[in-house]
Design a protein around this nucleic acid. Structure first.
Lengths: 200, 200
DNA sequence: ACCTGAACACCGTTCAAGT
DNA sequence: ACCTGAACACCGTTCAAGT
């Protein structure tokens, strides 16, 4: 038994994917701070210079990670969105999905938030962000059409809802809010957002 | 002219303060990524091991920086808060101050958000956060007392307003929102928060 | 007390050279 | 095409030794 049984999934045609997979695991388990290309190369069983073939930069690796994150977040939001629902439950479901993602991927989400103005990657990134935000914008637009929401500038309305959700996610990622407290508070949060803090 | 005129403010009794000052300048000008203890030591004109006398860790330096940030944010909020004002303008002024801080100290704010569970520093840090949040909580509490705000759980109300402001600040720090757009939108933001998105 | 110099164990990035 | 090995210029941290 001088070598592994068989079928090493790496080393050959899939180094890029292997690096990304290892990176995400490290990210989840030890945080961004402990993410090193050399360590990743070691984990995957490759020379320390090999990652350079697939990612011109450490930042490029991080960008790819963030991009994948947006992909998965987008899917989660799509899956959670039911356009047939009335506004409040629809928004609540969406918020719950977003916060769930934040809970399960706190470190990744921080990475996604951190803007690095890489001129090349920023195009894809902007598109990914757009798609994520677009999900929320659709809900607002639909609600406006149905008269369930005031007829203000949609941009402004998206900003409030977006900022609120973003802030909640940041609270979770930052450890200022426990997952339980966050999920327990979603309903009232959305309610307050829709009905306002002033007495009616 | 082989040496500086006089009074080197550093090197002697003030290395700690000098390091913090240099660090904040670097933070503002080049971002956290370019913050190195060795570089800081060079800038201040001291050996690379000297910082270790005043900060056990690089993280300790960052913690001190964040703490100072909370100090200044707290002062800015205090200065902006006028308890005599009616709820909406009072909250607007506070929001404007918070976003102003985010605009002027984007990198620092990111540092302040980033939780590092340093068991020792977390005590001071928690207190600093508490004071910042407390400012907002006071506004909500006052408004509730006056009947200007619904009589829900104060925790929940603080969460909405806090998350919204936090999210806006993060949008600014992350470059997804220009300072102009952010400041221009404060009034309607606060209005939407207080009056809700549903038609009245 | 406060700082220096050398040392250790890491990094990211580049580049010739191998297969 | 894809990877290796060596090299370069950095890091943070520690620790004896100096003043």
């Amino acid at each position: 038994m001088s070598h592994m049984p068989e079928s090493r999934p790496y080393h050959h045609g899939d180094l890029r994917a292997a690096l990304l997979a290892a990176a995400e695991r490290t990210l989840r388990e030890k945080g961004v701070g402990s993410l090193s290309l050399r360590e990743l190369a070691r984990e995957v069983g490759v020379s320390h210079a090999a990652p350079g073939r697939h990612f011109k930069d450490k930042q490029a690796l991080l960008n790819a990670l963030a991009l994948a994150g947006y992909e998965r977040l987008g899917q989660a939001l799509d899956a959670a969105d039911d356009p047939a629902l009335p506004l409040e439950p629809r928004l609540t479901a969406l918020a719950r999905a977003y916060l769930g993602f934040a809970i399960d991927n706190a470190e990744l989400l921080e990475l996604m938030y951190a803007r690095k103005h890489d001129p090349d990657a920023s195009e894809q990134m902007a598109a990914a962000v757009e798609r994520t935000v677009g999900n929320l914008a659709q809900v607002v637009a639909d609600a406006q059409k149905r008269g369930e929401i005031i007829a203000g500038d949609p941009e402004d309305l998206n900003l409030v809802t977006g900022a609120t959700l973003h802030g909640m996610a940041a609270f979770i990622a930052g450890g200022m809010l426990t997952p339980e407290a966050a999920l327990a508070g979603v309903e009232t949060l959305v309610h307050h957002l829709l009905h306002g803090l002033k007495p009616r």
